[in-house]
């Protein structure tokens, strides 16, 4: 099915712009990089026959206007909070925008598809916590831990993910979440050490902080900087640095407190 561009009347401008920004919003919210968001919005607008348009995207906001010089001109400002990452939604939106650009999608279809994309569920809680555990265990192992370390990391990782999910439900601040998360795994590993398990405490902690480590923020920030979006790159870089600092604070606090516990095993 092909869309006839001439069919769109002036009153559709608003709706097309809303659709395009909504698509961009979903992309940005789930961890897409700035360049992709801008590009997608512009392509969608062009596909529906709007030539005069401008889009400016930041890490946490979208500004877009269409047909400014005409009577049906309109613009949209959106605030998009920095959020979690859902790669499935990014891939689905990518597919949708490809089809829109190829003129395979009418406006109503596009809305339906978009809503379907937005409704993609996150992975189930128990699956998440199991795989978080496995991931942590594997990282603990490849970073030089033994099998016992990996198994300890598995259980701590599962508990950590449960805790992270609980805290994100309670809408705790990101800083507190990271500090408490890393403090928790450090405390857990020290507990295991004190119970007499032959574990390498540092390897367990390194494996278990992997879900907290700002790998995604760092990657996104580099990609934004590379594309010349310095402001957004700086926002993500700041995010990555602060997250790293929070992890350091969480780990550090527990180690300091541990030194005051009488009878603690002295770390190397």
């Amino acid at each position: 099915m092909s869309v006839n561009i001439e069919n769109f009347s002036h009153s559709d401008t608003k709706e097309i712009l809303t659709l395009a920004v909504e698509v961009g919003d979903t992309l940005l919210r789930n961890g897409g990089e700035i360049y992709r968001v801008e590009d997608t919005i512009l392509h969608i607008l062009n596909a529906y026959g709007i030539e005069h348009c401008d889009v400016y995207v930041l890490s946490n906001g979208i500004f877009a206007s269409a047909n400014e010089d005409r009577e049906d001109g309109c613009s949209i400002v959106r605030h998009v909070p920095l959020g979690g990452v859902h790669l499935g939604k990014i891939a689905a939106i990518n597919q949708l925008s490809r089809e829109i650009v190829a003129n395979k999608c009418t406006l109503t279809d596009a809305w339906e598809r978009l809503n379907a994309c937005k409704a993609l569920p996150p992975t189930k809680t128990w699956i998440r916590s199991i795989f978080c555990g496995i991931g942590c265990a594997c990282f603990a192992y490849i970073f030089g831990g033994t099998l016992i370390d990996a198994i300890s990391a598995l259980f701590l990782g599962m508990l950590l993910e449960c805790m992270l999910l609980y805290m994100s439900k309670r809408k705790s601040s990101k800083f507190i979440t990271n500090i408490i998360g890393s403090a928790f795994v450090t405390a857990g590993s020290l507990l295991l050490l004190n119970l007499g398990f032959p574990v390498m405490q540092d390897k367990i902690v390194i494996g278990d902080i992997m879900p907290l480590v700002p790998g995604i923020a760092l990657t996104t920030s580099i990609r934004d900087l590379f594309n010349g979006d310095y402001l957004s790159g700086a926002i993500h870089l700041m995010d990555a640095l602060l997250t790293a600092m929070c992890i350091a604070v969480g780990v550090g606090t527990v180690i300091i407190l541990y030194r005051y516990i009488p009878g603690g095993v002295i770390l190397q």
């Binding site: 790669l87 490849i142 540092d202 390194i206 790998g215 990657t219 992890i247 350091a248 780990v251």
Partner: peptide, 22 residues
């Protein structure tokens, strides 16, 4: 992004962050 973001994880210096703060 899909492949890059996940693939980069083993290389991100998580161990470095830990030892630095330690």
């Amino acid at each position: 992004t899909l492949y890059l973001v996940i693939g980069i994880f083993p290389l991100v210096p998580g161990a470095g962050i830990y030892y630095t703060s330690y």
